[in-house]
Design a protein around this nucleic acid. Structure first.
Lengths: 220, 220
DNA sequence: ACAATTATTTAGTTTTGTCTAAAACTTATT
DNA sequence: AATAAGTTTTAGACAAAACTAAATAATTGT
């Protein structure tokens, strides 16, 4: 597979909502920052290799084979992201660009050994699940802390309120994107929530709980 | 720089004996497994970008700019090799192919952090020196153990005698390519040599000393 | 010194992935 | 149901990096 083919497969997979539903030529063109005519050409080529299902004017969907290719690229991307954050001390938000390059390195042995070296992680630094060798992975959902039951665990991946004041509060309380939290207790009375963080457990108000998103990986 | 351009620069650097001397079109074609006419085209392009000095029919040499590009690629290649062997437990001889891909990843931050993660290694698993950010590196030489004075230190990189018997002997004595040895003592009487290995020190006969190559990095 | 050999370059194609412009098809609107 | 608007495909071209075949320069042997 060429680099360009891999990028198209990945784009189609993302646009089809991680599923196999049909995607429009224009949508792919926009995603890939290219023109619709170029997309048509490439899609024909991918159809030749039976990586996608394609009928003129009817949109494109990944074949099973194509879906597995997409998942293997995503597996590589997310493992490299874990490596960059855990081992090389990159920050949460710097890793994507580099991982976009690393995901194209061709070596099964490399990925197996990297996986082992990282301790077989289940999620990447953004809380997204890492498919295994066979493309099996747990779905994840993004939810506000206030929507979750006691016992849930996930990676903090975003804020609703991006005001300076709120971000300052998070900083003060040692809460950063990429941190893993577990919900320990929910106070009926005022809706405040006790969560465990790396540095012990803290209680956050309902207001804060409705402004912090966690990425939750379903139990398997 | 494109991938192909980087590969040409690297080939020219190797063919010019890690120097800036002139290299023949045919030699490059052979190294790159391509045709001389393709080389001419690419060399013109590299000359445009003043990465090489080129006059028709006169061969090619790297410019200072080109030499620095070559050294930065080699730096990346060798750092990745150290990573693959030290961190991912690849064996000595499997790493080259993978490193050939990894060396093209574009990110200065990545290489800096990788270097730090590896503890700023001076040599790769084959005993070859790793250039620093500015392209400065210590020259290395390959010598038989029997040619070296007491105190020398280097990485075992090859054998003269590749008979099964000799290789079996090495295995039995826990000597493998990629190991670092130091010469502790040379016995005048019979030319036998005491060397330190990972698992203590051993004495090897003159015959063996004349059949094992070490890669020695000059003191700086 | 000149012919023969070898090395190098030129000229013209090929392939991959892109582009523009025009044509063909769908969908939405009235 | 007809047309307008939007989407997708076709046709023809281009740039990068390769190739083949032919032409030209350099080197070597006698």
């Amino acid at each position: 597979m060429t680099l360009s083919e891999e990028d198209y497969i990945k784009a189609i997979y993302h646009l089809s909502d991680f599923n196999s539903k049909s995607v429009a030529t224009n949508a792919i063109a926009e995603q890939m920052k290219t023109k619709p005519s170029s997309v048509t050409d490439m899609v024909k080529k991918l159809a030749e290799k039976s990586l996608v299902n394609y009928k003129k004017y009817q949109g494109v969907s990944l074949s099973e084979k194509g879906r597995l290719v997409a998942l293997s690229i995503i597996r590589k991307h997310r493992l490299w992201e874990v490596f960059l954050v855990d081992k090389l001390n990159f920050s949460w938000d710097e890793v994507h660009v580099v991982a976009e390059q690393l995901e194209h390195i061709k070596s099964d042995a490399l990925i197996d050994k990297l996986d082992a070296h990282l301790g077989y992680p289940k999620v990447d630094p953004h809380g997204d699940p890492i498919p295994n060798k066979d493309g099996v992975f747990t779905k994840s959902v993004k939810k506000l802390i206030s929507e979750l039951p006691v016992g849930s665990q996930g990676v903090c991946v975003g804020v609703n309120d991006s005001s300076a004041a709120f971000l300052k509060f998070l900083d003060k309380n040692n809460i950063a994107l990429g941190d893993t939290f577990k919900i320990l207790e929910i106070e009926e009375f005022d809706g405040s929530v006790t969560i465990s963080t790396r540095s012990g457990s803290i209680r956050i108000s309902k207001q804060i709980a409705t402004n912090l998103f966690l990425e939750i990986v379903d139990e398997e």
